[in-house]
Amino acid sequence: MNTATPIIEIEDLTVTFGVDGDERRAVDGVSFSVNRGETFGLVGESGSGKSTILRAITGLVANEAKVMRLAGADIRKTRGKDFYRKVQMVFQDPYEALHPRHTVWRQLMEPARIQNIQGAEARGHAALDAVGLSRSLLWRYPHQLSGGQRQRVAIARALMSDPEILLLDEPTSALDVSVQAEILNLLCDLQDERGLTYLMVTHDLGVVAHMCKRTAVMQAGVIVETLGVDALVHGGATQEYTRKLIAASEAYGEDPHDAAQARA
């Protein structure tokens, strides 16, 4: 994508937790940009600050940045109504992310009510169809759904405002492998249909390799390196930490024959 324009531009983003005297930088001077229609990965181990970046972008945690521009709008100080329409987030644990005492339909109607979306009902049905949920589930509560169904509801809810950017925070790590495959496929389909841009946080290199074109590798709040997934997979990593991460994932993860083939 040579002609693509960046839709997410982040420069020198810093998030500090704790009070005076006992401060800890969870994210320390991070810069990256993501092109329209691209899937960009943020990979790292727990505590690397990858999820904190998503929360900083959405304003859920306080932060400082030299540049923070999403879909053309500067969001360092304020986020307008428009921001919440264009940017949505999908969380790791779909059970936690859904209101425990609202039915599926009410979960979908909530963003429509808050944002005053016209034709909410039609849009709700369209969103359900888009994520492949049956109408018979409309009046169930989250606890009456399977993990995969819950994540589909969460994605459908995110689609209600017709967003341009989805922030995906480990969207499949709480799901079974076979369900993960369904959700990843769904995300790919939605991207093809709607030209969505994904910023995806994950610890799973397999998922990154499957979903992303480019990825940033994070450690202790810092981006160690940003590289294409082809390079990541085929030994193009330049940093010691990235290599260690790949080696560890392969040692007890990857299909051995598959890995052997790739090396040959």
């Binding site: 940017v87 969380f91 859904l98 963003p111």
Partner: peptide, 12 residues
């Protein structure tokens, strides 16, 4: 909790 964060992200 995430479901409250989700509502905040709707602009509520």
């Amino acid at each position: 909790r995430d479901h409250i964060s989700a509502v905040r992200l709707m602009g509520a």
